[in-house]
Nucleic acid binder design. Structure first.
Lengths: 330, 330
DNA sequence: CTGTTAGCGCCTTCAA
DNA sequence: TTGAAGGCGCTAACAG
C-alpha cells in the first residue's frame, strides 16, 4: 500500500495535476505550490509508480538485453558496461539468455514488445536473421552488437571478425605451423565471419587447413572437440578457438593430454580470457574491446530512442592481436 | 500502435471482458465465444500489454536481481541459473550491479518497488544490512543469496563460508606453509565470514598468519595486493584469495614475478576459476555450487511469491574443497 | 455464460 | 497558475 499521487495531492492541498507537474518539472508552477508538494512528497516518502508511468507513456524506462549466454565473459563484460550506461541515464536492464535458440530469441523479442521496453540490445542468432525484418516493424528501437545484419538498416556495433580471424590464423602460419584446425561457434553470424577469415588465411596453402569444427560456445564442447580433432587428424599441430569458452575447454584438454605448447601444438583464440596471459606458455589472442562495445551500443541505443530518425550507424571496432608465446614453434 | 483487447473484442463481436476471460482461462466461456476470440487474436496478431497487466495486478512478472558485479563468474553463473528458472515460469529478470555501493543498492531497492517487481534476489552489501529491515516492510518479497543476514527473517541461500575458509587455510597449513597471508573482499558479509574462518584456522599458531588484506573484488586489486604483500612481508610463503577475480589478479602477479608455486609460495582460492585446474601447478580451491545456488534461490523466491506466509528458509549449501598441487610444498 | 462498470496511478489536454 | 476530466490496457466484481 504505497502512496499514490493522489495522497500527495491531498496532503499538499492541491490537485494531482499540480503534483504531477512538480514531479516532472514541466509547466508553470508557483513557488508556493512547489514547496507544498515537495514537503508532502517528503513527509509521505512518496515514490512514483513506474508501471503506471509506463502505461501512460506506452514505454518503460527499461532496456532489453538479449544475448546467447551471460556466462560468456565477453557478454558479461558487455552487460556490465550496458548496465552502467543505463543506470546513469535512469534506465534499467532486462537480461535474457537465448542459448542461440531462435525460438527463445523470438519469445524474448515478443516479450520486449509486451513489456514496452524503451529499446532492445540484441546479439542475434543466425536463424534469427530472417525474423529481424518482421521485428523491425512492431518492435521497440533496436541496436545490434557483436553480430550485425548487413543492409538491414539497423544500428550495430561489431568488430571486424573476418580480419581478426585472418590475423589469428596468420599468426599460426607465421609461427611455422602447417596442420591447423579451427573450432567455431555453431550458429552465429560472427562465428561464420570468423570462419571465413580463417579460411581466407589459407588461400595460398589450402592443405595447411586440416579441419573445421563447430559447436556451441561452452567449455565442455571445446574439451570434447579437442578429443575429436586429435583422433581424426594425427598430424594436427595447431588449433584456433573462436571464443574464450571454447578455448578454455580446449586448452584444458590439451594440457590433460600432456601435449606441449607451443612445440607440439600451436594455440590461439579470441577474447583474451584472464588466464591467457599467465599460463605457460601465454596464449596469442585477439582481444576484443568488450567494455567499449557495451558502452557504445548502449549509448547508441539511447540516441536512437531519443532521436528515432537519425541516420543508421554501423560501428566497427577493431580487435587487437596480442602475440604471445603460444604461436612460436621454434 | 499494437492492438489492444478492445480491438480483439470488436473483431470477435464480444466484450473485452470475454476476451480477457479467454486469455486468462478463468471463468465460464462457451466454446463458440472461445473460438471466435482465438480467431480474432490470431488474425490480429494480438499480444497482451504486460505493463497494463502489471498496473492492474500491482505486480509485474519480473524478478529483480541485485548483485555486486555481473563480471564475477560466480555471479554470472548464478544469473544464468536464475534467468533459466525465471523463464520457465514466465518471469523475466531485471539485473542490477551495485559495485558494493550501499547507495546504489538502495537506489535499486527503491527502483524494484517502483517497478512493482514480483520479487527481489539480493546479495546485500555489508552496509546494506541496516536498511534491510526498512526494505522488508515496503518492498516486494525478497530472498538473499551468497550473503545472509542472520535472524532477519528473510529467506536465504548461502554456503558455509566460515567452514570453507577454514578448510582452505588448513590446506595451506597442512601443506607445510608457515607464513600465510589472506586477501579478502572489503565490504560483504561473506568476506567477513571467510575472514573469520581463515583466522580460526590459526588458533593454535597465530604467528603463522602474517597479514590480512581487503579490497574490492576486481582482478586489478588482486594484482596490486600481491605487490603490497611481498613488499611488506619478506617471509610470506602462501596466499589465500577469497574470490576468483582477486585470485586471477594475484596468480598473474605471482607468475609475472617468477615466483615458484608451490615451492616458494602456496596458493589457494575460492570459486574454482576455469584456469585453476589446468595451470601449472593446478590450484587448490573451494568450489561453490553456483548454478545450484542460482536455481535454488530463484525457486525459493517463486515459492515465497506464491505463498507469502510460508516459513522462512535459510538454506546452506556446502563448498567443496578440491585439493590440487598448489598446496603441496614438498 | 456474458456484458457493463469501475479503477489500478499517472499525465496531459482543456478550460477556468 | 491551477483543476477537472479522460484515458493508457487490462481485469475483477457485479449484474443480468
Amino acid at each position: 500500500m504505497p502512496f499514490s499521487i493522489k495522497d500527495v495531492a491531498a496532503k499538499a492541498g492541491c490537485s494531482t495535476a499540480t503534483v504531477s507537474r512538480v514531479l516532472s518539472g514541466k509547466g508553470y508552477i508557483s513557488e508556493d505550490a512547489r514547496a507544498k508538494v515537495e514537503a508532502a512528497v517528503e513527509a509521505l516518502g512518496y515514490r512514483p509508480n513506474r508501471v503506471a508511468r509506463s502505461l501512460r507513456a506506452k514505454s518503460s524506462r527499461v532496456i532489453g538485453l538479449i544475448l546467447s549466454d551471460i556466462r560468456n565473459p565477453f557478454f558479461s563484460e558487455i552487460s556490465r558496461a550496458v548496465e552502467n550506461v543505463a543506470f546513469r541515464h535512469g534506465y534499467s536492464v532486462l537480461i535474457c539468455n537465448t542459448d542461440e535458440d531462435p525460438k527463445k530469441e523470438e519469445n524474448y523479442m515478443e516479450l520486449m514488445a509486451e513489456e514496452k521496453v524503451a529499446g532492445i540490445l540484441l546479439s542475434p542468432t543466425r536463424a534469427g536473421f530472417k525474423n529481424v525484418g518482421k521485428y523491425k516493424k512492431h518492435s521497440p528501437p533496436m541496436v545490434l552488437f557483436d553480430r550485425k545484419i548487413p543492409d538491414s538498416g539497423i544500428d550495430s556495433v561489431v568488430i571486424d571478425n573476418f580480419e581478426a580471424a585472418f590475423k589469428l590464423a596468420s599468426a599460426l602460419l607465421d609461427g611455422g605451423y602447417r596442420n591447423i584446425a579451427g573450432i567455431f561457434g555453431a550458429r552465429s553470424y560472427t562465428a561464420a565471419e570468423r570462419l571465413k577469415g580463417f579460411q581466407a588465411a589459407f588461400e595460398k596453402h589450402p592443405d595447411r587447413l586440416v579441419g573445421i569444427y563447430q559447436a556451441n560456445a561452452f567449455e565442455a564442447e571445446g574439451e570434447r572437440l579437442i578429443g575429436e580433432i586429435l583422433s581424426k587428424h594425427s598430424t594436427v599441430d595447431a588449433v584456433l578457438c573462436s571464443s574464450a569458452l571454447l578455448a578454455t575447454g580446449a586448452y584444458k584438454a590439451l594440457r590433460q593430454r600432456g601435449i606441449l605448447i607451443p612445440q607440439e601444438m600451436g594455440f590461439v583464440c579470441f577474447d583474451d580470457p584472464s588466464w591467457a596471459s599467465f599460463v605457460d606458455p601465454p596464449v596469442t589472442v585477439i582481444r576484443q574491446p568488450a567494455s567499449t562495445i557495451g558502452q557504445t551500443v548502449a549509448e547508441l541505443l539511447l540516441k536512437r530512442i531519443n532521436e528515432p530518425d537519425r541516420p543508421v550507424s554501423e560501428i566497427c571496432l577493431l580487435g587487437e592481436l596480442v602475440e604471445r608465446a603460444s604461436t612460436r614453434k621454434a
